[in-house]
């Protein structure tokens, strides 16, 4: 599904990603862990199509297509989704209108019929239950005045509604209390399927207790230093990153 081959990228002449390799297949859940500044967020933003990064080498294939030449909206319509670490607030645009615009834009791009307001409302109501968001969230402006936990739940709601093929979750667990973490995990687990790839970018083991990954990678200084199964995350939790750097 996703193949990252020897990817190198920089921001303002500072090399952030250095020769990074990663492959995610449909049905797999990958966790990417690593200390601050290791390039985790750069990787996710670069994959989603944010401007401001210079590609120094390598390539990214998404279902065989050269991802890095596509616009963010084209990537989204191919089925790529990034749950933002810091979801932005959009005053003046209701959550429902935003979701409907996104949903219908994707359908249109795929040549499917757009959903009308009534049908879409029904769909969203159903999906909101999963992340325990009540209807008042839908009429409020996107993320405006939302707590940290509410913003992250809103990201998960978008993911559930838009049904992407590849989900990248950038520190979705950070700043969540234990109840919110459970809700978010429930949403992620509901998204898991054999047709879908998931990348969980996180600092902590605790999310992985609820969403068990198939693979764990340690990203450090722009490259993947070590990969393993879910037990690698437990070791990191116990011993920190130091032992990997020394080994």
């Amino acid at each position: 599904m996703l193949q990252i081959k020897n990817l190198s990228a920089s921001v303002d002449n500072k090399k952030i990603l250095k020769d990074l390799n990663l492959e995610v297949k449909a049905g797999e859940v990958h966790a990417i862990m690593g200390p601050n500044g290791s390039g985790k967020s750069t990787l996710s933003q670069l994959l989603a199509g944010k401007e401001g990064y210079t590609l120094d080498g390598g390539e990214v294939l998404f279902e065989g297509k050269n991802l890095l030449t596509l616009s963010p909206e084209e990537r989204a319509s191919l089925g790529l989704f990034l749950a933002f670490q810091y979801p932005v607030e959009i005053p003046g645009v209701s959550n429902l209108y935003f979701l409907k615009s996104a949903y219908n834009a994707l359908r249109k791009k795929r040549g499917e019929e757009e959903l009308d307001a009534v049908d879409f409302m029904e769909l969203v109501k159903e999906k909101s239950k999963l992340v325990e968001m009540n209807e008042s969230f839908l009429t409020r402006p996107v993320n405006e005045g939302f707590s940290g936990g509410e913003k992250k739940r809103n990201e998960i709601l978008q993911m559930i509604v838009l049904e992407p093929k590849l989900c990248i979750l950038d520190e979705t667990d950070s700043g969540l209390d234990i109840d919110a973490l459970k809700v978010v995990s429930k949403g992620i687990n509901a998204t898991r399927s054999k047709n879908r790839g998931i990348i969980l970018i996180t600092h902590y083991q605790r999310l992985l207790n609820y969403c068990e990954p198939d693979f764990v990678h340690v990203l450090y200084n722009g490259k993947i230093l070590k990969s393993g199964g879910k037990e690698l995350a437990l070791e990191l939790e116990k011993h920190g990153y130091g032992w990997i750097l020394e080994s």
Binding site: G49, A76, F81, F98, A102, A105
Partner: peptide, 8 residues
């Protein structure tokens, strides 16, 4: 970017 990343 946020809006575009959702397909708009």
């Amino acid at each position: 970017f946020y809006l575009r990343s959702r397909g708009i």
